[in-house]
Write a protein that binds this DNA or RNA. Sequence first.
RNA 1: GCGCGCGUAGCUCAGCUGGAUAGAGCGUCGGCCUCCGGAGCCGAAGGUCACAGGUUCGAAUCCUGUCGCGCGCGCCA
Length: 550
Amino acid sequence: MSATDLLRAELTRAARSLGAPEAIEPVLERPRDPSFGDWATNLALVLAKPLHSKPRDLAQGIVEAIDFRRAGIRSAEIAGPGFINFRVDTEVVARGITSLIQADESYGRSDAGEGRPVNVEFVSANPTGPLHVGHGRQAALGDAIATLLEWTGWRVSREFYYNDAGAQINNLAISVQTRVRQLAGEQAEIPPDGYHGEYIRDIAEGYVAAHPDDAHGGNLEAIRTFAVAELRKEQDIDLQTFGVKFDVYFLESSLYSTSRVDKTVKRLVEAGHTYEMDGALWLRTTDFGDDKDRVMRKSAQFGGDYTYFVPDVAYHVTKWERGFTRAINVQGADHHSTVTRVRVGLQALEMGIPQNYPDYVLHQMVSLMRGGEEVKFSKRTGTIVSIRELVEEVGRDAVRWFFLMRKGDSPLAFDIDLARSQSDENPVYYVQMAHARMSGIFRVGEIDPASIGADGVDFGVLALPEEQELMKALLDFPAALASAADALEPQRLTTYLLDTAGRVHLWYHKAHVLNEPEPILRARLVLARAAQIVIRNGLRALGITAPERM
RNA sequence: GCGCGCGUAGCUCAGCUGGAUAGAGCGUCGGCCUCCGGAGCCGAAGGUCACAGGUUCGAAUCCUGUCGCGCGCGCCA
């Protein structure tokens, strides 16, 4: 049980003894000013209304009802309008650091998810081109969210859905076919809504080499198959470069071949939420809060196909039926209009799927900055900069960190110069350096960090304010990680790591380790080990490496 | 026009689901160190949290409206 759990449990007991409602859950937070103490609670302020008493009187009652020993505190003071500030027993801090080191690689893990399954879908790029930096942000976010959920006890499946069936694939095939014809010396133009990137020519050349019998590109079906396979291969390399692995690749075409699309449509019709108009089949999405109804099946004059959201709904039915009672989709905010449609489609099926299923994590656009100017184009791919190029230039760790350090809600200006720089101003360098420095202590001292144990160590000698603050920060790690996981906001963890790395550096400058006399040496080795573990685990949970030296 | 998101220090951004005097880095100014395991460290200035109302013990955070920016608004995906 962590220090905060102890205190919280005791507060709950004290509050109930004063007549507080059963459901009360005391909130603990770090006081803004560390001189106030280690933890503060607003419990008395919250209870003032239901109990019809003055906050300060209640606070007094709570303080008197607390068993300090059981709560693991050495003082409790009432402040301001009714806050209660606590100072944690030094013994409790010592125990916390001790169990941190014992937990080692699993420090920060919790079982809030209780092993329940969750599906995290991200990237889901159609095989019509290389992955660009927007997909990169998605890959970093999705992979980090998935890992954070694993750390908090969920059974995670990473899933990549791709459209290998629709109009865009047709566009791709025609674009490649055009290039094949040009190679054969024919006059041909890629249609305006086709794909114009340089890579299309590469694929055309590959096709001709693999299909010498079809040098003029007459076999559109073979071209389509070839192009999709090539681009899937390229995207896999992109993902590999980025270090992302998926558990499931889900093909849109399989939804047709298994009749799942037809079944979904049938069910929607039977549920009575559809109607025919102008030769098309419509879903009455306005019944569920959409601003207009949506076409499900196009009329004959538009080709008679299903619109994209129909297979998308069928796809999400499979997630539900595969046992994923929780599903998270990571997408660019430019696709946010799909959120309502997918959810509404699932509601209209009336099969007991919750209204807010699936969860969405939407992220804003990425722009690349170099030399203070925006980078717009890439030689290789035309109008986009591919994630592979970016990773090759600045490195996987920096790319991941930069994509994770901002809230998804805000647009991201990726500073290439900063990401490359080997200096404290580069946040990922700064954090990794904190880990490398801790590792350096053990390397120089020729001590195996894994051999460090905290038994019998006198924590009382860690009296510097910097080491007190550092220990507190290290003990905050599990809560910081859990908060990032719960909110599906990895930037909470990057923020925590940056702050904690700052405390590590501060301590490192202030306190020597290796040349100190015995009781201090041992205690500081323990602290260095604890810091090393926290930074390493935090970076790993974000998919970033923690180097031993830099 | 409608929907979603955003607006916090000169710049880039945090702000832990409503808490105390709104924070960090960079930049600026002043000082210290210039021995170390990669030259850092200390301090200062800098804010109408876009604006106006509202909710309550208490709002950057929740609600309403206004302004500005981004994205979306197809029988495209």
